[in-house]
Amino acid sequence: MLDILHPKISNINKNNIDINLSEEKIKINIRGKNKEFFTKVGKILSIILPSETNTSSSNENYDVLWLSPDEWMIYFDENKNTNIFDQLYKDISTLNVGSITDISSQLICINIKGENIFELLSSGSPFNFEKFKNNVGSSTQTLVNHIDVILHHKSKNNVNLFVRRSFSEHLYEWLVDSSNFI
């Protein structure tokens, strides 16, 4: 097997903020509009795609985030089910009911947890976390320190932050620096 090299993101714990790399994770971008699409995805994943803005659905295997009215992201630990992408691609992309794209390496998952994480994110994000932090399961796309991110409120004060791989080290360093000044 080829060696895997993850971005340089190590565990940091400061001022009630815990920052961790949360890989390996499979991430799949799912696009589609019609009924057949929803039925098929639902069947394969045993999950109903969230239709409400800025929300997510989860079951024991997957988390699915709403990204836009015809776009979702599903993510899960790599060791859970490695051929779900192939299944989805075969039944959705190949049959032209939507689009399935593997973005596992496109995004890096950084887990941030602790009491002060929303303070931390607010240093660099114009997003209003008021509702978000009171609702476990919320998801949103926004900017943190000018970098696009997807945020998933996994459990109370525990957020999975997804950022493009190329930005991830820079954003991580910025998060670490910011956590000094909470």
């Binding site: 971008n29 696009r31 589609g32 015809d70 032209n96 939507g98 689009s99 794209t101 593997d102 973005i103 596992s104 390496s105 496109q106 995004l107 493009r164 791989r165 190329s166």
Partner: peptide, 12 residues
């Protein structure tokens, strides 16, 4: 048009 675009710049 039935077309979906997804950026994969960082995936590869």
């Amino acid at each position: 048009l039935d077309v979906y675009l997804t950026s994969v710049t960082d995936h590869y």
